[in-house]
Design a binder for these strands. Structure first.
Lengths: 213, 213
DNA sequence: GCTCGCACGGCACATATGTTCTGTTCGGAA
DNA sequence: TTCCGAACAGAACATATGTGCCGTGCGAGC
């Protein structure tokens, strides 16, 4: 952890964590004073200044409770993104709606992901996988896949594509082969789909998979 | 979404989201007033009261910036837990330290997970998987497994166990067979380990696996 | 038209809260 | 010892901020 902090500073930092976890808003200087048994507000202020210098927090002057926790390297932390869960998908079955749904509000559910998990990307959505047709990609029934919205991709990437003619969306590995496209299921027992390049529209690229046991 | 809200209330709610995302602390009433082009603080207060009645926010009286976003059903939202990343593990290689490390602060890194992902459990830790010795459990090199700390488990559960004699920790499926224990690797090409029941100490049960692509 | 409640405007007020100033204590360097 | 800066105490101060009060416009219902 951090060894460049005094006991009091460590105690303040821990109190900050707990207080924010409890209230979802930061404590005032006097809250910290009471919570850490500190004798004076100026001592709190003094140590907060040190913590800010060392990159553990950020403060806005003149603003009450304006303390933001950083990760010790001066970077922001604890932030989640509500990722829309657009529906279920099996390799072959459609997503409920061709997802222009994103910008609208036409999804029922969201899951919270951290920036770590989305890689800081903003155009992400999630799908719940049904069936075990993607077993070779280590994705099982019930898993959630997180996709980055895109309309292009490289060969071999795992993408959700919309088949215009069939009007359905499916999760496959994408390979361009001249004028046509090979969509490879991630299950050795299933055969690839071949279709004209202009029949497919890439919807998103898989960036993360999450499984609960 | 919500259709029981006035335009102004919706605007306030959205401003709250953006402000908190920007600053990590909630806005004051006057911040909202400016941000939403509202003419008076009392109008903001009035609408905040309505929002609180309808379960979209929670407020602490007399406390500045004490606005907590709820999910519309009166439940809290957006909360992450810093889960300690204790080290790397391969089916067979040890965790750096036999994890009493947990309560101390002897880990280098943490990952942020949402309560959704930890299932609300508090005693969780994470390990990064090395090698593909757990491929049959759909866990690959580089994946992160999240474990719930426990010292008991049922047959067939995927657990981290500490082998006292060998002084190493490994990730296996656990089967009790009379006086001995079978530790089954999750790779068909690898053989199970048989050892005395009192030689194994269960460290944790796998609850989630996360893969980034 | 009249009443009444809802949403709003304006403003003063009380207090919650960050800041600052003056000292004090204490340990190490000179 | 003396000097000096880090850390702390205590209190006053300035302002940031929530709250309450009084009034207005307006549409619904009678």
């Amino acid at each position: 952890m951090a060894d460049d902090l005094s006991l009091k500073q460590r105690s303040i930092l821990q109190f900050l964590e707990e207080f924010i976890a409890d209230h979802d808003y930061p404590p005032s200087i006097r809250d910290i004073q009471n919570g850490c048994d500190i004798s004076s507000t100026s001592v709190v202020d003094y140590n907060l200044k040190r913590l800010e210098e060392k990159g553990y927090i950020r403060r806005d002057r003149e603003v009450s409770r304006a303390i933001e926790l950083l990760n010790g390297q001066g970077e922001r932390r604890r932030r989640t993104i509500a990722v829309p869960l657009l529906g279920k998908i099996a390799a072959g079955r459609p997503i409920p709606t061709p997802p222009d749904t994103l910008s609208a509000g036409g999804y029922e559910d969201t899951i919270e992901l951290t920036e770590e998990q989305t890689g800081g990307r903003s155009n992400v959505f999630a799908l719940r996988v049904e069936g075990n047709s993607m077993i070779d990609a280590l994705i099982n029934d019930g898993d959630i896949v997180v996709l980055e919205q895109t309309d292009t991709c490289d060969d071999g990437e795992m993408v959700a594509v919309w088949l215009k003619g069939e009007n359905e969306t499916t999760l496959k590995k994408f390979f361009r082969e001249g004028e046509r496209v090979r969509l490879q299921p991630m299950n050795a027992t299933m055969s690839p789909i071949y279709t004209a390049a202009d029949n497919v529209a890439v919807q998103g690229r898989v960036v993360t998979a999450i499984r609960s046991l």
